[in-house]
Amino acid sequence: MTDHFLKATRETVHLGGFSHLLEPVLTVASGDTVDVETYTGYYVYDKAPPEFLTPEFLDICQNLAPERKVAGGPHLLTGPIYVQDAEPGDVLEVRLEAIAPSLPVGFNAIRPGWGALPHQFHQPALRFITLDLANNIAEFPAGAGIKIPLKPFFGILGVATPETSRTSVPPGSYGGNIDNRELQAGSRLFLPVFVPGALFSIGDGHSVQGDGEVNVTAIETSMNGRITLKLRKDIQLTTPIAETPTDIITMGFGQTLDEALELALNNMIDFLKRFTNLSPEDAYVLCSLAVNFRITQVVNSPQKGVHGMLPKAIFSKSINL
C-alpha cells in the first residue's frame, strides 16, 4: 500500500463535469491512500475576500486550460484518479478517512431559477461566511449568536462514464453530486465502475449542510481530505451505496421526490435481500419499521435525491460489505 499526495493545481483539477477522455492525474493501486486537496468557488473568486484566495487557487481560476473545462457545471474537481485493474462491472470502495476545511471561510449563493423556492427567492445573493475552525463552528448570520457545528463532507465523489462529457450538477449511478451530508469522515462509499481505471474525481467541499440543501448551496468550502481507494471485484452494484459507523445508506435519484424515494426504497430492499437474506416482503416490512428515508437534496436539477438509512445496531450479526 502506498500513500500519495494530490495537490489541487491547474494541471490536476477539472471544471464542470466528468469525462473518460480526461488524462488521469494520478495512478494508484487498490488499497492506496491519497491525501487530496480541493478548491471551490471558481465562478465567484473575483468577489471573494483575501482569506478565500490562495496563489494556487488564483492560478486555477485565471489559467485553467480549455481542455480541463469539461462541461457547464460550477464545480472544480480534483482528478481523475486511475485505479489499476479497475474494469467495468467492478465496484470502487472509497474510504473517507479524514475531511477538513483548508481555509477559514466559505460561501453560500442563491442562484436565480434554482433552489426549492425559485419564484420566491429569485434575486442572486452571495454570502461569504467565516468558519471558526478552532471551535468547529460557523456563526450565521454574523453576530446573531446562532452557532452551527461544522460537519464537513465532499458533495461530489464520482467516477467517469462512457459519455464524452457529463455535467457535474446532477448525481446518478456513477455518484457525482450526491450532496449527502452523512458521508463524513469514517464513512465508506461504494461506486459502480463504468470505464477502465474508474477515473475517480472528488470536490465540492461543504463545511455544513442541511438535508435538502434547499437554497442550492451549503457553506461551500475548499476542503482537504484523506481517502483510501479499494477495488472490489467481490460485489456488484448498479447504484451507489454507503456505510457510516452507524448506518447502511441506499440512494435514489429521480426527477421527482416520489421517484427518488421509490428508487431509494427499492435499493434498500435489494440490499436487504442480498446481504441479510430477507424475503422481498420481509425486507419491505423492515423498511417501514426501521429505515429512515431522508431528502438528500432537491436542487441538483434534473435529479432530486432521497437516501434511506438502515441502523446497523438492529442486527445481531454484522453486515459485511
Results as ranks from 00 to 15, higher is better:
P118Q: 08
I81R: 04
T54V: 07
M223L: 12
T276Q: 14
E262D: 13
E51I: 11
L265Y: 15
L199A: 09
F128L: 06
G176K: 01
H20A: 03
G143K: 04
I235M: 14
F140Y: 15
L199I: 05
L257K: 05
P74M: 02
S207H: 10
N215I: 15
L131Y: 05
T161N: 01
L310H: 01
P80Q: 02
T38N: 11
M309C: 14
P24M: 08
V28W: 04
F253M: 09
N267M: 08
S19F: 10
A144T: 02
E139C: 07
S165F: 12
S201V: 10
P55K: 10
N135V: 01
A125K: 12
Y42L: 09
T244L: 09
T161C: 03
A109T: 10
Y43Q: 12
I146E: 12
D32Q: 10
K317Y: 06
T12Q: 00
R111G: 05
N277P: 01
R10C: 02
P118Y: 04
R274W: 02
K317V: 14
R232Q: 06
Q209R: 03
F57N: 04
D247Y: 11
R127A: 12
P280Y: 09
L58C: 07
L310K: 01
E139N: 12
P74N: 13
G143L: 14
V91S: 07
V83M: 07
F153V: 03
E11D: 15
L76V: 08
S318H: 03
V216R: 13
F57G: 00
F5P: 08
N292P: 00
Q123G: 06
V169C: 05
R294W: 10
P124D: 09
G106F: 00
T221I: 11
S173T: 06
D59C: 04
D35C: 03
N63R: 10
G115C: 06
G16D: 04
D132E: 09
I99D: 03
K230W: 07
H122P: 01
I319S: 02
L126D: 00
I202Y: 02
A144W: 09
G31E: 05
W114Q: 14
L278D: 03
D59K: 02
Q123D: 13
K147H: 05
A185G: 07
V214Y: 15
W114R: 12
A98S: 08
I248V: 14
V159R: 06
A138E: 06
F153I: 06
I249L: 15
T164G: 07
V105R: 07
H14L: 06
I110N: 04
S207D: 09
Q297P: 01
V299C: 10
V306E: 01
A100R: 13
D247K: 11
R274F: 09
L76M: 07
P88T: 11
G158F: 05
G254L: 10
G16W: 01
H20S: 08
P66K: 13
Q120D: 07
P55Q: 02
V299A: 02
T40P: 00
G308I: 00
G210I: 15
Q123S: 09
M268N: 08
E23F: 04
D247I: 02
T27P: 05
